[in-house]
Design a protein around this nucleic acid. Structure first.
Lengths: 171, 171
DNA sequence: ATTTCTATTTATAAGAA
DNA sequence: TTTCTTATAAATAGAAA
């Protein structure tokens, strides 16, 4: 019946190059679609293989999306964590003499030092990076030693800190 | 030539139901393939939309896999450093310019500084958080950010727990 | 745990809503 | 930001290596 212009509504999917989408509008749409697809895949993986998984994404609009595929004991775990954090208050580190602003100063200071150390480490790292073949994130951390794990935990801490800064306006 | 049984090597992909794969061997293969696909998708999303993203997965074999897609992330730098160090020790790829002993010295030194900064930052951050307006985790559940953070903290705790389970000395 | 090989199943780029 | 549609690009189940 439709021999001319009612048969095809779209040209269908097209191949694209994996590189930053410049047009803001398109980037937005692509993000929405692909994030959706990613989370779906993630949930399928969780169900199929009975594993736990977490994804955190910062959208182009600086919004945070998460995908946590598994639900058990969220409360208990969280409470445990909180309990651990609360111990801090018992240490009375928050005396009258120290004001919030001053801490922020120290915080910034420490950050600077940390940045310097990072740069130093990055330099050293560059020397060894030459022979790297696979993507670092594709490796399991199963075989890390204690020190390496410590670094790893610290990197997690960094991420947490960034999250706090980003959302709680701390610092 | 092959009219009977040499033409098709496989039956091709089959539709499956999304539910726990019972056969351990198959589950393992499925996990490997789909995790790979998931990480690939994740990285494409990061590149296409210029966003930051992190994934943590606990494999069926209790291994931890991570995908942190973004460029100058602290996490990436530190992780790369970790991998680089490991590979250095394994392959001795540092040329004549830097001797192994010297490298280790610098490593130990940087490690100490980082440990100190880490603790310092943790303390300061805790102070800032508490002095802000009480525990951030008590924020309304309607607060997206708060919820996200809670979930993230849980993830971190889970990670710690798993590491501890492996008898690692992580605090 | 990762990878090869195909036939199929899925995910999606575009365009518009 | 998510959804709808269609034609096409990609991912992947199953069997083995």
């Amino acid at each position: 019946m439709n021999t001319i212009n009612q048969r095809k509504k779209t040209m269908g999917r097209k191949k694209i190059e994996i590189k930053k989408v410049e047009k803001e509008a398109n980037k937005q749409v692509t993000f929405s679609k692909r994030r959706s697809g990613l989370f779906k895949k993630a949930c399928e993986l969780c169900i199929l293989c009975d594993v736990h998984l977490d994804i955190i994404v910062f959208s182009p609009a600086d919004k945070i999306f998460r995908c946590g595929c598994s639900q058990p004991s969220t409360d208990a775990v969280l409470k445990s964590y909180i309990r651990g954090t609360t111990e801090f208050e018992d240490q009375q580190l928050m005396g009258d003499s120290l004001i919030y602003e001053e801490y922020n100063k120290e915080y910034e200071e420490a950050l600077k030092v940390l940045q310097m150390e990072k740069k130093k480490l990055a330099d050293i790292e560059n020397l060894a990076r030459v022979s790297k073949r696979g993507a670092w994130w594709n490796d399991s951390i199963d075989d890390m030693n204690g020190e390496e794990l410590e670094y790893f935990m610290m990197s997690i801490f960094e991420l947490k800190k960034n999250l706090l800064k980003k959302n709680m306006n701390i610092s």
